[in-house]
Nucleic acid binder design. Sequence first.
DNA 1: CCCCTACGTTTTGTTTTGGAACTTATGACA
DNA 2: TGTCATAAGTTCCAAAACAAAACGTAGGGG
Lengths: 112, 112
Amino acid sequence: MKWSELSDNWCPVARTLSVVGDRWTLLILRDCYLGKSKFEEFAESSGMTRHILAERLKRLVEEGVLERRLYSDAPKRYDYVLTEKGEELRPALRIMKDWGKKHMPVRREAKA
Amino acid sequence: MKWSELSDNWCPVARTLSVVGDRWTLLILRDCYLGKSKFEEFAESSGMTRHILAERLKRLVEEGVLERRLYSDAPKRYDYVLTEKGEELRPALRIMKDWGKKHMPVRREAKA
DNA sequence: CCCCTACGTTTTGTTTTGGAACTTATGACA
DNA sequence: TGTCATAAGTTCCAAAACAAAACGTAGGGG
């Protein structure tokens, strides 16, 4: 089965994961919860490639998790802010943060 | 940046995601929370390929999220059960379930 | 004019995934 | 004895996703 077919799965967990259950997407949300909103901020903070970042942002906007907002007219610049729908995933990230702190100690040097 | 380098990130969310933040892994955990434990159960329930399933189970065992358990001597058969570490991610899945119910309605026919 | 910022897109080569067939060990049936 | 079924994987190959780096675009500042 392809991942893309998951958005109509009977299981609500699967449908949620069809939006945020890939590599990187939840890291974008983490940055949003930390107050970041700009493309360059996400790119630098997460270490993901600009290619993938652009794709994921597009999808998050399509799904109504983020909103693309014009914040500068000249030159045209857009950033990304959480919608209410996006805010409601915050508790899940909080649990992952606590779980990581407890169960996933850093072994080598931190990189980013 | 490669995904595999994420396990030593400074951010505990990133470290958590280095284990469960890919396509399919959280779906395995969902099945575990629903009481499933067998390879064939996971394969059928999630719709993922056996190839990927085997890889993900191996990783979850390595990370101490699941435990591989001999449940039949002849023929040798193994299944997978949650450790305490694995149990502690359950609340995150619960949030995703609620989020999916609220924000991700099924559009077409359910498949699996 | 030329360089800087910032949000992307394109290109190229590598890695991961999807799908299906195959393996191994055993029990059940006839 | 031979054939079928079960269950946990493994192997193969083509297709899709990804990483890295360069390029594009639309101003602003010196």
